[in-house]
């Protein structure tokens, strides 16, 4: 797979650079846009970003490895982020994650994101999603699901099938 950036995406990125007096500032926004497009940050994407912003590749790799939202490998099409922090834990977040994992045949004790072999789902525990009043909450790709019980978890799985 050769690495090409579609023209409209590149135009979008060029525009982003104009938001900052120092180009390097645009790097997080670049990575968000590239991850949205490619699904993850490949070495090619990281190096392309560095070149574009006049940086060394390490300046981008150090971001990809620091910020939890960036990934260096492809993940499931449906990304299930279960909040694990206190208010959600009190409301049963662990059982919800367990439920997702059991239904998908994933290891519910693993501390890293788990992806199904067919590449449909990735399940992971994340920290407080700032929706604690409707715990437990689950972020599925970009949409927030609140007060998630097992029934709703099953609906999420059905949607991603």
């Amino acid at each position: 797979m050769s690495f090409t950036i579609p023209k409209n995406l590149e135009a979008e990125l060029d525009e982003l650079v104009t938001h900052y007096p120092v180009k390097r500032s645009a790097s997080l926004m670049f990575l968000h846009a590239l991850q949205e497009h490619f699904g993850f940050i490949s070495n090619e994407a990281a190096e392309w970003t560095a070149g574009k912003l006049g940086l060394q590749p390490i300046h981008i790799y150090e971001l990809v490895t620091f910020y939890p939202m960036f990934r260096q490998k492809p993940i499931g099409k449906t990304q299930v982020k279960v909040c694990r922090t206190l208010s959600c834990a009190l409301a049963g977040a662990a059982e919800i994650r367990e439920h997702f994992c059991r239904k998908l045949g994933l290891d519910s004790h693993a501390h890293v994101p788990q992806t199904t072999p067919d590449g449909r789902f990735t399940v992971e525990f994340v920290e407080c999603l700032a929706a604690c009043g409707s715990a437990p909450v689950v972020l599925v790709n970009e949409s927030l699901h609140e007060r998630v019980g097992k029934g709703q978890a099953d609906e999420i799985l059905a949607l991603g099938k």
Binding site: L31, H32, P68, M69, V126
Partner: peptide, 8 residues
């Protein structure tokens, strides 16, 4: 301008 963080 809006600047997005990334989970930290």
């Amino acid at each position: 301008w809006v600047h997005r963080g990334a989970g930290a």
